[in-house]
Design a protein around this nucleic acid. Structure first.
Lengths: 156, 156
DNA sequence: ACTGAAAAGCAGTAGGG
DNA sequence: CCCTACTGCTTTTCAGT
């Protein structure tokens, strides 16, 4: 499942993770390769699923979602029903991310809302499934990033 | 700080959040506008910081990071020193995201590693700052997404 | 604020080492 | 796996509404 990536592939991934819309001519310049060789590598990475897509990153505050919170959900007792929650994820765009985890809590979610009242509404909905723990996000010392080359490696 | 976004702006944001590299000619077709009017709106959204960037999304498993965990860090006692942690975030690419939160834990982090041993190494490093709680991610029912239009709104 | 058209730049393909 | 050259599309710019 793990593809074999050489130094050039990692250089391409680095660039595209920071600037996902640069022209391939410019990308080619940065990784010291011709445009067509670069394009071919990008297509290969896309086809292999190493690059799963390209996304515009949208500022939450400037789009009217100033309240960000981490909500953890713990299911009670035995016989947990997970389908209703999966359905809720589709209905509630306020839930930006949901991770199923080991440990005391089943799910860890990142939730963005327009106000505290709005957050309360979402948390109330989630509380129908189990007990929730909500923490507001004060700041984002590291907003979000993707994987980097594990260490300096020979060109393979 | 919140920009005034009309229905067309939201349509553009929706498209670019799902396909960040589509040609503006295609984007214009989808939002029923001319190419140059569309480009102008995109530039305005970029300049206003509504679109903060474009990123290629890279698959963690296929790049050799099969272990994903949520690590929470709690600082002990009074007089917390936050700078050393900020420095660690720059040195450790395994830490993909870091949120400072209210509540018992100061920070919530998402950490990707090549192995359990590697995770242990990162957690040990974090444990120098305070007590940590680590939960492995079993699956991602909702991998990650951005904000959507709060509700149906008039074209303004 | 949007349209449409011309000029410049980029992506895709073919042919070849 | 890489290169160059050619062709068609995309992006940019700008005059006009």
């Amino acid at each position: 499942m793990t593809e074999s990536l050489d130094a050039t592939d990692w250089a391409i991934l680095d660039e595209l993770q920071h600037e996902g819309r640069i022209p391939f001519t410019e990308l080619a310049r940065r990784v010291n390769l011709s445009t067509s060789a670069t394009t071919e590598r990008v297509r290969r990475l896309e086809a292999a699923g190493v690059i799963s897509g390209y996304r515009a990153e949208v500022d939450l505050e400037r789009t009217g979602y100033p309240v960000l919170a981490v909500v953890r959900l713990k299911y009670p007792g035995p016989g947990n029903r997970h389908e209703p929650l999966r359905r809720l994820l589709g209905e509630r765009p306020e839930i930006l991310e949901c991770l199923r985890t080991t440990g005391d809590d089943c799910y860890v979610m990142k939730v963005a809302t327009t106000s505290m009242a709005h957050l309360e509404e979402v948390v109330d909905k989630l509380a129908e499934f189990g007990s929730t723990t909500t923490n507001l996000v004060l700041s984002r010392p590291l907003p979000l990033r993707g994987p980097r080359v594990p260490r300096a490696r020979p060109s393979e």
